[in-house]
Structures are given as C-alpha cells and as structure tokens.
C-alpha cells in the first residue's frame, strides 16, 4: 500500500484495530523512477515529498507502545542528518521545501514518540479517543439522563487533590508572611512521598496496559483476530491511568514548588 493511501491521524478509524501495514515501503522515486523507501530514494538518494502519515509510520514502526529509545534516537539522528535543510540547500527549490517540511515532521514525530506519556496519548488519539473532550462528553451524558455526571477520575482522588490544594494554599500564605508552619511542611512532605508511590504505581499500571496493547498488535500482525472488546478495554484502561496521572503529576509539581520556595 502506498504511503499516500494511509489514513491521516485526524481521521482515525477507531472501529478496527489499526495495524500499521504501511511501513514506509517502496514507491517510485519522482526523480529517477526507481523504487524508494519512504523518505529517500534508495537508488539516487533524493528526498521524497512529505506525505501525511502518523508518527509511528513516519519512523517505520508498528503501533506498539514498547519501543527502544536508543533505536528511535538513532533513527532520528540518521534521518535528521539527511533531511536537514542545510544539507539540501544546494538542491532544487522543491527539494528544499520538502526537506524543510519533512524535518519539521520528523521533529514533531520524535518529540511525541520519545516521551512515554505523549506517545501513549498520541496512540489514544489515533484510536479515536478525544482526551480533551472527556469531561464535556460525560456532562452531555448526564444532561441526557438527568443523572449525576460520571466523574472521569475517582471521587476519593478528587477529594485528596482538593485537600492538598487547601494545604498548599495555606503553606504559600504562611511563607509569604514569613511564618512557615513546620507541622504543615512535614505533612506536605509525607503527602509527597505517598503521592510519589501512587504515581509510580500508576506507571506500572500503564506498563501493564502497554504490554497488553502490544500483545494485541502482535496478534493482529501475525494474522490472528483481535476482539473489539479487548481493544476497547485496554484503550480505556490507558485513558483512565493517564487521567489519574495528570492529577498526581500536577500535585507533585505544586508541592515541590511550595516546599522549595
């Protein structure tokens, strides 16, 4: 399948398990007519026009969440060297334009994939999850049914977040007045430890979900069938973990900020 036929990330088909069949395979080079790999012609080495592909495909990767950071980094540097606009400065205008566009695509792809959290978020978006719209969707559901809205994070976590924010506010005030409250400070330090443990636990949960996801991808790639409900279950687990994680990481950041101020 040619790269241009690959689905754009903005229009994910969430109904099926996406298997990345469109590794940057071979297409005719615009310059010499030979078959090429995605980014350059294998025969004459010319940079190829940018195509709207997702970031996994850009790197020729399957949609797996476990990846080797060193390998990705190596690939990034190798591609950077060849795509850099300076290197292509002596080429035709359109090649310069392409190398510029592809460099920026490369940077976005690398930045997104190298971080485990943004990588997961990106995959979820490809799977049709609108992370920014969850709250709104749940509110609409509540309006429709007249029930209390289903909160996207567990109530006890919200309670904890609220209480800690109250303490942080008090601590900030104390510090401003030049009267730091030692008891409160110790309490915050204790809370910080607990939150860090919780946070680490979440990362383990995420890792377990990654492994499940990759298992599904592997099965699909080997031609096995993957149940829709399995795909949705893993996907929703990841969404849930990321939601809780964002609260915890904000809290840890705020506690550090207050304790170190």
């Amino acid at each position: 399948m040619a790269l241009t036929e690959h689905k754009k990330p903005e229009q994910p088909d969430s109904g099926i398990l996406v298997v990345n069949q469109s590794r940057p395979t071979k297409v005719n080079c615009w310059s010499c007519g030979a078959m090429r790999a995605a980014h350059f012609c294998q025969e004459c080495g010319k940079v190829q026009p940018p195509t709207p592909v997702d970031y996994f495909t850009f790197f020729g990767l399957p949609f797996r969440l476990n990846l080797e950071p060193e390998k990705l980094e190596g690939e990034f540097y190798a591609l950077s060297r060849h795509l850099h606009p300076d290197i292509n400065a002596i080429n035709s205008d359109r090649e310069q334009q392409w190398s510029l566009e592809k460099s920026s695509q490369l940077n976005d792809a690398y930045r997104t994939l190298k971080d485990p959290i943004t990588r997961t978020e990106y995959l979820l978006r490809l799977q049709g999850v609108q992370l920014e719209e969850q709250s709104k969707a749940a509110t609409e559901e509540a309006r429709r049914t007249g029930k209390i809205k289903k909160q996207v994070v567990p109530p006890d976590l919200l309670e904890q977040v609220f209480e800690l924010n109250m303490q942080l506010e008090e601590m900030r005030m104390n510090k401003k007045m030049g009267e730091p409250d030692r008891t409160l400070e110790r309490e915050l330090q204790d809370s910080r430890k607990q939150l860090q443990d919780k946070y680490n636990g979440l990362l383990q949960e995420l890792q377990a979900a990654w492994n499940q996801w990759d298992g599904l991808i592997d099965r699909a790639e080997q031609g096995g069938s993957v149940l829709e409900e399995d795909r949705i279950a893993v996907r929703d687990t990841m969404v849930d973990v990321l939601n809780r994680r964002s609260y915890l990481s904000n809290l840890l950041r705020d506690i550090d900020e207050v304790l170190e101020s």
Binding site: S135, Q151, V153, L158, Y247, N250
Partner: peptide, 13 residues
C-alpha cells in the same frame, strides 16, 4: 459538589 477535569487538573467545589 466536587468536580474536576483531568484535561487541566482543575478542581472545583
């Protein structure tokens, strides 16, 4: 009512 939005990490009572 205590609610929150994970999108931004806000909490509102």
């Amino acid at each position: 009512g205590l609610v929150g939005a994970p999108e931004c990490g806000d909490v509102m009572k």
